[in-house]
Simulated assay, not measured.
Amino acid sequence: MNVTNFPLRCWTIISTVLSIGLLFFLLGFVFLKAQGVITLNFILAKPAGFPVGSAGGIWPAIAGSLLVTLIASLFASILAFFSAVYMVFYCRDARIHLILNLIIQCIAGIPSIVLGLFGYAFLVIKLKLGLSILASGLTLAIMIFPFIQIRLQKLFQETSKQLLEASASLGINQAYTIFNLLLPMYRKQFLSIVTLASGFAMGAAAPVMLTGCMMNAPVPKSLASPFMSLPYHLYVLIGQGISLENAYGTAFVLMTLILFLNLLAAIPTILRMRGKP
């Protein structure tokens, strides 16, 4: 072993062990606090009691979180894909490219509560979407759009120029090459990026609490319906001192869902390490 690399190797190993240990510690701590609460009835039942949330379950919050995350991921991935394609393959003006990059970086730095305020003022009031799962989904889409776009842009920039030149030499237009060659080639990485962004969106409370999330609402039946979400439900349970036990149970379910999404996102990387296509 190279002596100069030894400190770096040690620090890498220590950092990895600490990161994994912290993850298991947090999961274990929350689970121990919530083990008396987490039951099948808690997961599948509606909130009950007075005040609401002191009894019953969290199924509407689980369903609402999954649905609003799906809406956000769908809109954000479409917008991020086409903007990344434009900036990598079609934008030839360096000034426009710089301005677009600056705008995307600024969007990435906007606090989530400000995005929630924007969603309330523009989507809920101005566009008259009302307090709805659609308004919340679009607000979350704005939040995760830079996360997806920056990674897709980097992915497209790493495309072999020889591949593009060979396609052009055969008389194939660039749009056909992008949708029929690059998109299938990068589909696993694309899905992995969107899945990671979905976990980011699922854990956000501020953007949804101002645009459509309620303390007590049924599973949404349409895009115009209000909904419940796990982060906001957890915030209310703790903030108003309704039920600390149910708060730990809600936190564990939320952490488990986000961890599951992150594991799904890691599958393409694991497959590549094993040499599978």
Rank of each mutant, 00 (worst) to 15 (best):
A168F: 11
I142Q: 01
P207V: 10
Q157A: 06
Q189V: 07
A166I: 04
S136N: 05
V114D: 00
L164G: 01
K154R: 07
I178P: 08
I104L: 09
L102S: 15
I172C: 01
L134D: 00
G130K: 10
K161Y: 02
G212R: 15
I110N: 03
P111D: 07
I142E: 01
A175M: 13
L129K: 05
I178N: 05
Q105A: 00
L123G: 02
A141P: 02
I113A: 11
G130A: 08
S192H: 12
S192Y: 06
V208C: 11
L163Y: 09
I172R: 06
S198T: 10
F190A: 08
L134Y: 14
K154N: 09
T139I: 09
F179C: 01
S198V: 08
I104R: 01
L129S: 00
V194Q: 02
I144E: 00
V114E: 02
I178W: 11
S167N: 05
M202W: 11
G109Q: 13
K154M: 08
M185A: 11
Y186F: 15
R151K: 15
F200I: 14
A121M: 13
P146R: 05
I107W: 00
I103S: 10
Q174K: 11
S169I: 06
G109I: 06
G212S: 12
L117T: 11
N173R: 12
A175W: 15
R187I: 07
R151W: 03
I99G: 02
N101K: 10
L196M: 15
Q153F: 09
I107C: 09
T177Q: 08
P146W: 04
V208H: 12
L170A: 10
G116F: 08
Y186V: 10
I148M: 07
G171T: 05
P207E: 14
L183G: 06
T159I: 15
V124T: 03
I99W: 15
G212P: 13
I144P: 01
K128F: 05
I142V: 09
R187W: 14
